[in-house]
Design a binder for these strands. Structure first.
Length: 595
RNA sequence: GCGCCCGUAGCUCAACCGGAUAGAGCACUCGCCUUCUAAGCGAGCGGUUGCAGGUUCGAGUCCUGCCGGGCGCGCCA
């Protein structure tokens, strides 16, 4: 079930081998000049260099051997020695038929499936997500789905930032503001059980995410200047880590309200985690881990702290060590990360962990990874940081709202959704749909707009956050892709109601050829996205497919055509739809039935 | 100071182990709805790929230097 690129590569490689040339040079790629050919091989040029012969002569010799291939309508030599291949309509028809019959729509699976864990780099408890969290969720989700579709066993972990000093600060701040909560916390801490669970619940229910969001910045600021306040927060933090019942119960409340809000935001974005692990989950592993690192002789005392040196011979720059235990005796950011690697090894035992986190953390991860390799907690190369660019405003500076604050993710989704409603109304669409169905469409259009705007860019480049562009629904946008898909669905519905059924695919028109060649490119796009952790390759494919379909739609009437052609085109349209929906699904974008 | 990333059309971005004429969208100009959804299709306009060298038959892509921008550089996460 190989794609044409592979099939043709094999043919050309065989011809190379017969001529005594390195077969791998015969590799075929999609043509850079669609006006001249469907596929090309540049191997004669490279081979000529190696064997010291004229590239055009070599190309001609290869072409001669390919000439009899019934799949090829033309084999031509062009320029300095490109071998141009043009397929027959019959070969394209066969390939289209093959993709149509394939549940995977022409995509391969990896030869040896692995266990892979995707770490989304952790939203923090008590902080609602803002636009800065958008990329990690969108890209992480796409990578998770790409890996899964390729056949790996993949888990996505939200990986909460839910432990440490920030929690102590917040507990103190909430108790200051809510005496009823403070009373219960203190009673529980004192071991009193007089309060019924209902009373506890009622008091804790008054603690909302909005409270946490409001109190945290104030508490953090106060902790920086007010030493007494800071000391108290540290004591609470220590007590929390000792599982003092009151603090622990309140902390759990923080975690719960945060998770509910996060789940809502993530769900609205079509992002779903398999694991809701957090820093607190590995807290118990830290002491034994430190002891073990010590026993392995990896820990070094330095300036009162305990560190692991990770610099290597040949490093271009001196990497700082991993700070395992601070001079105050507490575990650090990297310590938790290391313990998490250990934890994952014991539970899921992934062959690869992908950290989908801001590019700025590159050094941090390099340090943690090296420490993990040194400690034997992970195989060399089994940890990978997949970084992405930062989120900036159109002025190139970190994005801020007009008021100068951060834009909450939930607000941004709602903003985009509102724009989608407007456009639907303008176009007079969905007016006779129930309100619920209308909202579903608006939501899907909004998510498609947001996600595609992000995913069409290579993840590594910096990101310009432009709300106008995000809410533009024309051109190379998510809604364009949905629109194309929905147009096919509309045709399929009509065909069904008229009793028209799809039949064998016969390719003849240029638009049909182009659509088939584009369908064939799915495998290449997925393979690239997988290897490079680059979802934009799939996004690009989805866009090209939509464009190719749209041209086909304009050039080739389906339902009005004579029966055999109609059946063929209907099948081709259905196949394009299936692959487009699959590609979008892999990007985490859902398609409505109509719009 | 050291290190990493980036610099491509007016704007936002692509470009498959280095390959032919560097592609899309937006914006701008023009054409196309009595036939399957015009959030569409077609055509046009727009480039010395930051600069200077080097390697190569061939460089946006690899190497060196420079200019410009972003980020990071042990007791926050």
């Amino acid at each position: 079930m190989s794609d044409l690129k592979r099939v043709l590569s094999e043919a050309v490689e065989a011809a190379f081998a017969e001529l005594g040339l390195p077969p791998e040079l015969g590799r075929v790629t999609a043509s850079d000049r669609p006006d001249l050919a469907d596929f090309q091989s540049n191997g004669a040029l490279a081979a000529a260099k190696r064997v010291g012969k004229n590239p055009r002569e070599l190309a001609a010799a290869v072409a001669e051997r390919l000439a009899g291939d019934p799949r090829l309508a033309a084999v031509e030599i062009a320029g300095p020695g490109f071998i141009n291949l043009k397929l027959t309509d019959a070969a394209l028809s066969a390939r289209a038929q093959q993709i149509a019959a394939d549940p995977r729509l022409g995509a391969e699976t990896v030869a040896e499936p692995r266990r892979v864990l995707v770490d989304y780099g952790g939203p923090n408890v008590a902080k609602p997500m803002h636009v800065g969290h958008l990329r990690a969720s969108i890209i992480g989700e796409a990578i998770k789905r790409i890996y899964r579709f390729r056949g790996d066993e993949v888990l996505g972990d939200a990986h909460f930032g839910d432990w440490g000093y920030q929690m102590g600060l917040l507990i103190g701040a909430v108790m200051d503001e809510k005496p009823a909560v403070a009373a219960i916390v203190e009673a529980l801490n004192a071991g009193e059980t007089a309060e019924t669970p209902e009373d506890v619940g009622a008091a804790f229910d008054t603690v909302s995410l909005a409270d946490l969001d409001r109190l945290y910045p104030k508490a953090a600021a106060k902790g920086k200047t007010d030493t007494d306040y800071r000391d108290r927060a540290r004591k609470i933090t220590a007590a929390l880590q000792d599982r003092q019942p009151g603090y622990f119960a309140l902390w759990q409340r923080f975690r719960d309200v945060t998770q509910v809000a996060l789940e809502r935001d993530f769900h609205a974005l079509g992002v779903d985690f398999d694991l809701w692990k957090g820093e607190s989950d590995v807290e118990d592993l830290i002491d034994p881990m430190v002891a073990e690192l010590d026993a392995k002789g990896l820990l070094v005392d330095d300036q009162g702290a305990r560190i692991i040196r990770v610099s290597r011979e040949g490093d271009k720059k001196q990497l700082p060590p991993l700070l395992v235990v601070s001079s105050e005796g507490s575990a650090m950011y990297g310590t938790t990360d290391l313990a998490t690697i250990l934890d994952r090894r014991k539970s899921f035992d992934p062959a690869l962990i992908i950290y989908c986190v801001d590019q700025r953390q590159a050094d941090h991860f390099e340090i943690v990874f090296r420490a993990a390799y040194l400690a034997g907690y992970a195989g060399e190369g089994s940890l990978e940081h997949v970084g992405f660019g930062t989120m900036n405003g159109t002025d190139g500076k970190p994005f801020k709202t007009r008021e100068g604050g951060v834009l909450k993710l939930n607000d941004m989704i709602e903003l985009t959704r509102e724009k989608a409603r407007e456009r639907l109304h303008e176009a007079g669409l969905g007016e006779n749909l129930p309100a619920e169905a209308f909202e579903d469409i608006a939501g899907k259009v909004a998510v498609a707009a947001l996600k595609f705007a992000d995913l069409q860019n290579f993840r590594g480049t910096s990101y310009v956050f432009d709300l106008d562009r995000f809410t533009s629904f024309e051109g190379k946008t998510g809604p364009y892709l949905l629109y194309q898909a929905v147009r096919v669905k509309s045709i399929l519905r009509r065909a069904e109601s008229e009793g028209v059924t799809p039949g064998p695919i016969t390719i003849s028109e240029p638009a049909e050829r182009e659509l088939t060649l584009t369908l064939d490119g799915f495998e290449t796009a997925l393979a690239e996205a997988y290897d490079k952790k680059a979802p934009n390759a799939v996004a690009e494919h989805a866009y090209r497919l939509s464009q190719a379909f749209s041209k086909f739609y304009a050039a080739c009437p389906i339902l009005q055509a004579e029966p055999a052609v109609r059946a063929s085109r209907l099948a081709l349209a259905a196949t394009a739809l299936a692959q487009l929906e699959r590609a979008l699904d892999v990007l985490g974008i859902a398609v409505p039935e109509r719009m």
